[in-house]
Simulated scan of single mutants.
Amino acid sequence: MAKDEKAKAKAEQGKGKVKETAGRAVGNEEMTAKGRTEQAKGDLRQAKEKAKDAFKR
Results as ranks from 00 to 15, higher is better:
20 E>G: 00
43 D>G: 10
25 A>K: 03
46 Q>F: 06
56 K>A: 13
48 K>V: 06
27 G>P: 01
17 K>S: 13
24 R>M: 14
13 Q>S: 12
55 F>N: 12
50 K>I: 02
54 A>P: 05
52 K>A: 11
7 A>K: 14
51 A>F: 11
16 G>A: 09
50 K>V: 02
5 E>N: 11
37 T>V: 15
28 N>V: 05
43 D>A: 15
42 G>P: 01
3 K>V: 04
30 E>T: 12
14 G>M: 14
40 A>R: 09
19 K>L: 13
47 A>I: 04
3 K>A: 14
14 G>I: 12
42 G>K: 03
9 A>F: 01
28 N>Y: 05
56 K>P: 03
57 R>T: 01
18 V>F: 10
9 A>Q: 01
23 G>S: 09
52 K>F: 01
34 K>P: 04
41 K>A: 11
29 E>H: 13
10 K>T: 15
41 K>N: 06
51 A>S: 06
25 A>V: 02
52 K>W: 01
24 R>D: 09
34 K>T: 07
13 Q>F: 07
30 E>F: 12
52 K>P: 00
11 A>V: 14
48 K>Q: 07
43 D>E: 15
32 T>S: 00
44 L>Q: 14
49 E>H: 03
47 A>E: 08
45 R>D: 06
15 K>H: 12
55 F>K: 13
31 M>P: 03
